[in-house]
């Protein structure tokens, strides 16, 4: 048993994900109160080189051919074994396509409590989780003696979890990874896109408030009048009203335009995490309590359908 804070590093095709550094930053906040070290846990195959800029006291490296690419089964087996042996104070996972496939399963398998959607820790080892689409925060003591935690971005900047020195690396034994029920066949690249929204300076973003496919034309007309590009939140993409290449958010693209003009978007955390690098966010929403107004510089509380054509008309008159 130890007071160490373990961070399960997420990486995909040779690239360490930002959430890993966010978690390292969280672990550094937590470790003084816990009185242990920050340990980066890296699973992979011939992937030791990925451990070069982790702001950790130590790296534990688990190497196995079955860990070359992420699959839930192999990660669960390897981590269940490690956590059982070491019993650290906490193990942090991303609340992501990788971490969320593992953390809940391990909670049931090992009988360890799980804190989901943690955004930050307090200096006296409390967690603060974000739920209900960002509308509610829940705070509590980190369960003892060993807690599993999944983390969402927003509480720490990834840069706080980067370091110029590379921490010492120790290899940790990997159990037999046999009879795996989940295997990776291949990766499928994103469909090629006509525009790259991550590079556009002016984005007109539409959310569920746009109501139907026909109304996308209203956004198109506005974008044309002002010289911007249309993008959207997930519900719009899932309906097939715009192509996946226009998706902004956790499962889509991170964007950093000069101006992000959002209409009918509530500002759910999975959307917001991808737009915080924008120069200026302007939001149009009928709900005065929509979380998007908390991160927007300017807001308009109005029915977008009352506004959009008038605005398009005025823009057209200008040019």
């Amino acid at each position: 048993m130890s007071q160490d804070i373990y961070v399960v590093i997420e990486h995909l095709r040779g690239q360490v994900a930002d959430i890993s550094y966010t978690m390292l930053a969280g672990a550094r906040e937590l470790s003084p109160a816990a009185g242990g070290k920050v340990v980066a846990v890296l699973l992979g195959h011939n992937a030791k080189d990925l451990a070069k800029d982790f702001a950790a006291d130590q790296v534990l490296y688990l190497d196995h051919a079955a860990l070359a690419e992420f699959t839930s089964d192999a990660y669960q087996l390897a981590l269940a074994d490690l956590i059982g042996k070491d019993q650290p104070r906490a193990i942090l996972f991303g609340n992501t396509s990788i971490g969320a496939d593992v953390a809940s399963v391990l909670s049931m398998r090992l009988g360890l409590p799980l804190v989901n959607s943690c955004r930050s820790f307090t200096s006296n080892a409390k967690f603060i989780s974000q739920i209900c689409g960002g509308k509610i925060m829940a705070e509590g003591e980190l369960p003892s003696p060993t807690a599993l935690v999944t983390m969402v971005p927003g509480g720490y900047s990834p840069d706080q979890g980067r370091s110029v020195d590379s921490p010492p690396i120790a290899e940790s034994a990997v159990p037999a990874l046999e009879a795996l029920r989940v295997t990776l066949s291949k990766y499928i690249e994103p469909e090629s896109a006509d525009v790259d929204i991550s590079k556009e300076p002016l984005l007109i973003a539409v959310g569920r408030g746009i109501q139907n496919q026909d109304n996308i034309e209203l956004a198109d007309a506005l974008a044309q009048a002002i010289g911007g590009v249309v993008c959207a939140s997930r519900p719009v993409i899932d309906q097939g009203w715009l192509s996946t290449s226009r998706l902004v958010g956790k499962s889509g693209k991170q964007v950093k335009p000069k101006v992000y003009f959002a209409m009918g978007i509530s500002g759910a955390p999975e959307h917001v995490e991808a737009i915080t690098q924008s120069g200026t966010i302007i939001a149009v929403n009928t709900d005065p309590k929509a979380p998007i107004f908390d991160i927007a510089k300017y807001g308009v509380q109005m029915d977008l359908f009352e506004l959009v054509e008038v605005l398009t008309g005025q823009l057209k008159a200008k040019v």
Partner: peptide
């Protein structure tokens, strides 16, 4: 299975 940025993984699951 979805990963960020539109990347997909095809997996076989028993």
């Amino acid at each position: 299975k979805e990963y960020p940025g539109g990347l997909l993984a095809e997996m076989e699951v028993a």
